[in-house]
Write a protein that binds this DNA or RNA. Sequence first.
RNA 1: GCCGACGUAGCUCAAUCGGCAGAGCGACAGUCUUGUAAACUGUAGGUCAGGGGUUCGAUUCCCCUCGUCGGCUCCA
Length: 655
Amino acid sequence: MSAVSELRITLAGAARVVAGGTTYGEALEADGRSVVAARAGGELKDLAAPVAEGDVIEPVPADSPDGRAIIRHSTAHVMAQAVQEIFPEARLGIGPPVENGFYYDFDVKNPFTPDDLKRIEKRMREIVKQGQLFSRRPVSDDEAAGELAAEPYKLELIGLKGGAADEESVEVGGAELTIYDNLDPKTGELCWKDLCRGPHVPTTRSIPAFKLMRTGGAYWRGSEKNPQLQRIYGTAWESREKQDEYLHLLVEAEKRDHRKLGAELDLFSFPDELGSGLPVFHPKGGVIRRVMEDYSRKRHEEAGYSFVNTPHITKSKLYEISGHLDWYKDGMFPAMELEGAEYYLKPMNCPMHNLIFRSRGRSYRELPLRLFEFGTVYRYEKSGVIHGLTRVRGMTQDDAHIYCTHEQMRDELKSLLRFVLDLLRDYGLDDFYLELSTKDPEKFVGPDEVWEEATETLREVAESENLELVLDPGGAAFYGPKISVQARDAIGRTWQMSTIQLDFNLPELFELEYQAADGTRQRPVKIHRALFGSIERFFGVLVEHYAGAFPPWLAPVQVVGIPIAEAHVSYLQDVAKKARERGIRIEVDASDDRMQKKIRNAQKSKVPFMLLAGDEDIAGGAVSFRFRNGEQKNGVPVDEAIAEIVDAIERRLQV
RNA sequence: GCCGACGUAGCUCAAUCGGCAGAGCGACAGUCUUGUAAACUGUAGGUCAGGGGUUCGAUUCCCCUCGUCGGCUCCA
């Protein structure tokens, strides 16, 4: 090796000179645990790779996003090795890091059982303990094809490499193919190898914590036309503590599962008799829903919306005009044949709103015309995707369509986004980011300049709200750009909530027109927007956000009166009467349970306020509060107590 | 729709290697009532998701359907 004897590099912002053959790991004095890889000139490198002249080198900490991804990717390799040791006939698919973990796909005769997972995990722990080295080796395409002759899926990826160089794949990518050998640290013997771009942690010992999570089928390369492989998901972290935190979050999320809370709190159910994805709301869920809707109506009324109503079913003609029958038929329930006509359940409200717009001539003076409806729609969701209230077949959208002139579009979009964000905040969601889906240059309708202006306006408004803006280039539907509001809930999960979408297509198809000031006929701009998305879904999100402990204004039962003994029931009933007169939803627990049991029941039903009354309270014309957190406030005069509750309801406070 | 797991009382879960199905909570009835998360006693409650098959006999084994759960695809 007559390598250059000295190399000039930049480390931590300072110029350094190191001997030729120095590795990134040596240069960074990395231990392979807190620092798992290096970044040189923006590219991630193995610690064992030699530095190059002129490198600007930074460490990749284990607890950074890249660091975690590397740990997870390496863990995926360990898993694949374990799988192939236990199931030698298993063929490899791909095994990338993903959010919070990693997966690897395998072609196996029999799907993995939970027992298999245990065996695989056990073997993985042995491999980790053994400290196998991840050793990078560049290969030519032909060499790779030869070495991986038994791995048909890997061969397919090698074959794809040339054509799809832009594909960001962890297997192939960059200029050359590389294979990672896993070597026995003592003997240097080859234990396993995989086609992989890398980088990897230096040894399997650099995987501090991991756990296999679940299995499932997954189509090869994500297409349902391809064979289905068996995927194993796992998680891996830079420390045991971080992993425990993550697992704890999952437990917390499970406790908040709206499907579970919905049954426990008697909010809604999915009767088998109705069919999959068709919820019914019980009285308690019904109250929440009604309050949600009432408040939304009130706010829409204040914001200048007109309320409309449309039927649930229509002749096919409407969806021929709108084009739904061309491009959305799979998502619709099949037609009913009646009197020689075909009728469809409506999957969307907008076509019907268009009919309202064009029911008579429209003047520019009427614009913006904002039509709002709680419109119930039915969509044929495939059986495997139905999920609680978040993915259903029958749902009610808080759907609005705004018809305006080009000149009005800008202001309308601005006020609309503010309206949406304000309203979401009122429902208790206040941590947002926005996603802007822009034009797909290959596929769009409508004039360029309107796309441009609408997109720019959406961007401006997003920026003026000081919200994080994620771009989704080319992600818009063909008929218009879209901005969607993503909300983070109480435990940091994000949900797609509202969408605001321009539609340049339907006004054309329905030949919508208004008469402008100069007497010409113009096509209106149509803005489509749903704030909740669907009431069902939003309801589900709120259940999870609040973990079922709704703020008083939404709580189905706001107050439970609990007598210390039977003798105090009638006093509490008087209190309840007064409270009801102030609009409070209050119940008195007059059952023959003991007081402690009543408290337990009320606590479990997550009622915001308990009002207790015994001899002491009655003597002072008072009641005693118990709050959800177990705190109490005793001897509060009845009027004051009611005022406090009314205040919390009116101000929509959480308590 | 596809791959896999699952479906026992209102809920949470036992049991039956093919031989009369069980508990806790809840419900109901009665007894007892005094200060912040479970009083006591009793009663009712099941075509073991539905249908078909194998068998002397099926909740148990096989097939189909429905539903639920975890993934994939999809989410206009």
